[in-house]
């Protein structure tokens, strides 16, 4: 929403400081109670035909336009691979804690469907998994057997994001497959090398071996947040290449100052569909568990793959 529109609305209410009043003078729970009442009154005025009209105009509420059973098969195949590689699949809540994405990462809350009762509609499952991991660690419900042990979780979940879609085939809500590895820094980039190698193994098993995607390759890019990201990239790449000659990796060590989402290393997974190279996966290190647990030794590697995007690409008629 642009500032001009907000200003216009505030003018109409005759309360120019309404936002300040609601966000600063009220506690989160008071604001929630107030908004619940506002929505309650507002909805009580709706008629059934009005509801239908709202449904027809709302781009977030429509079902997905694909063959559900075939898509579910693909989803199950992906989850089977995740589980076999010990990335324990999680059935996440449709909502996450309000601010899950924007508090710890440079994500705009306006691109997320904020909801009541301290929630937002899930916009990135890796953030929800990171919160779950931090909770498990802080409450002692998960403890590593040895310092290098990793906690591996996965999900295939429907995401909702509010920006208008500009690419053909993209939709306001879509399913993403996610992998998250959490561990601690044990020196010499050990966590980094192992976790990236494992994520790439899973993606290779998913796209190349299971879904028969063509020309799967990975591109590594340096990102800020590490003392020597070029060395990090080379160590990770060399570690993977020493084990697997069948996983093609290219490096892009040009510094990208604008991308502060990932720390040290970002990677992209690319496949070829009908002669065109398509970006089908993305991942890298993030500092979210460091922030949640206030411990700089925490490490977190995340990956996301376009499960629904892949299905749509493979089932395009032209």
């Amino acid at each position: 929403m642009s500032p001009e529109v907000i200003e216009k609305i505030l003018k109409k209410t005759g309360q120019p400081d309404l936002i300040g009043l609601l966000t600063e003078s009220l506690s989160a729970s008071e604001l929630n109670s107030l908004l619940l009442e506002v929505f309650n009154r507002s909805v009580s005025r709706y008629s059934a035909p009005e509801l239908l009209r709202n449904y027809q105009l709302n781009r977030f509420v429509k079902p997905v336009d694909l063959d559900f059973m075939r898509f579910r098969e693909l989803e199950t195949a992906v989850l089977n691979v995740f589980a076999a590689f010990r990335f324990q699949p999680q059935e996440l809540s449709p909502v996450s804690a309000l601010g899950s994405c924007s508090v710890v990462a440079p994500a705009d809350q306006k691109k997320i469907l904020s909801a009541l009762r301290g929630t937002e509609v899930l916009a990135d499952a890796t953030n929800a998994l990171a919160l779950h991991i931090a909770d498990l660690k802080q409450t002692g419900r998960w403890k590593p057997g040895d310092p290098s042990e990793q906690l591996r979780l996965s999900a295939v979940h429907r995401h909702v994001r509010t920006p208008m879609v500009v690419h053909a085939g993209h939709t306001p809500h879509f399913k993403i497959g996610c992998l998250v590895s959490a561990g601690r820094d044990t020196g010499d980039f050990r966590f980094e090398m192992q976790s990236v190698a494992e994520h790439l193994s899973v993606l290779t098993a998913v796209f190349r071996d299971t879904l028969k995607a063509e020309n799967l390759r990975f591109k590594f890019m340096t990102r800020g947040g590490y003392d020597d990201p070029v060395r990090l990239l080379e160590r990770v790449r060399d570690h993977i290449c020493s084990q697997r000659s069948d996983v093609p990796i290219t490096l892009d060590t040009e510094p990208a100052t604008s991308n502060t989402y990932y720390k040290g290393l970002q990677y992209k997974a690319l496949i070829t569909v009908r002669g065109q190279e398509i970006e089908i996966g993305d991942g890298g290190f993030v500092d979210w568990t460091q922030q949640f647990l206030q411990n700089r030794k925490e490490r977190l590697m995340t990956s996301g793959i376009g499960v629904e995007w892949f299905y749509r690409l493979m089932n395009q008629t032209t």
Partner: peptide
Amino acid sequence: RHWLSFHSSAPTVQS
């Protein structure tokens, strides 16, 4: 341990 098995042409995998 789990393992995965799939055949050469179909995009199906058995765990």
